[in-house]
């Protein structure tokens, strides 16, 4: 086989796509031809470099800028039908109908997490947290407060139903 023939089929050879007889011919040529052997090695290194290129991370500042822009969009342009699972502290305050200052004071207790540098609360986790706290104290809630809580859909009904 001539070098030109081998080099034309080298990618197929490297990928194992050739018929066994043809692959053996190329193997025999490679055993004798340092130039084609070197090209096969270069092909392997090119593939490795391509894989590395595809994994290169964007610059950290660019990633941070995109996250910031995303946070704006995700907060202010959320699809109207969406029921927000991730809440800002303002939304938690509105949801619980208490001042934001009280929320900030309770930060140590609240199940918060950080998302792109912002403090957030997951709705399902917040409801669990409320349930844990209220289970112990539900008996002492005044009727007027209970009505307010229920109207806000805050307290799970099964807890209220179990109240004596």
């Amino acid at each position: 086989m001539m070098c030109a023939d081998v080099q034309q089929q080298l990618v197929h050879f490297a990928d194992g796509e050739l018929e066994p007889a043809r692959a053996r011919e190329i193997e025999r040529h490679l055993a004798q031809c340092a130039k084609c052997r070197a090209l096969l090695g270069a092909l392997g290194r090119a593939d490795g470099a391509l894989r590395a290129l595809a994994r290169e991370e964007p610059p950290a500042e660019a990633t941070q800028a995109v996250r910031g822009a995303l946070c704006d969009v995700l907060e202010h342009e959320q699809p109207p039908a969406a029921r927000r699972e991730i809440m800002t502290l303002d939304e938690v305050a509105g949801y619980l109908r208490i001042p934001i200052e009280d929320i900030i004071e309770s930060m140590g207790d609240l199940p918060t997490f950080e998302l792109a540098g912002h403090v957030r609360v997951r709705r399902t986790r917040l409801l669990e947290w409320i349930e844990e706290r209220e289970r112990a104290h539900v008996g002492s809630i005044a009727e007027s407060d209970l009505a307010r809580i229920l109207s806000g859909g805050l307290l799970p009904r099964r807890i209220v139903a179990g109240r004596g």
Binding site: V66, L74, R83, R84, E85, I86, R120
Partner: peptide
């Protein structure tokens, strides 16, 4: 789409 902001950051 159901409101989980964190899910979108995971896709990002």
């Amino acid at each position: 789409v159901e409101g989980d902001e964190a899910a979108f950051h995971m896709l990002f």
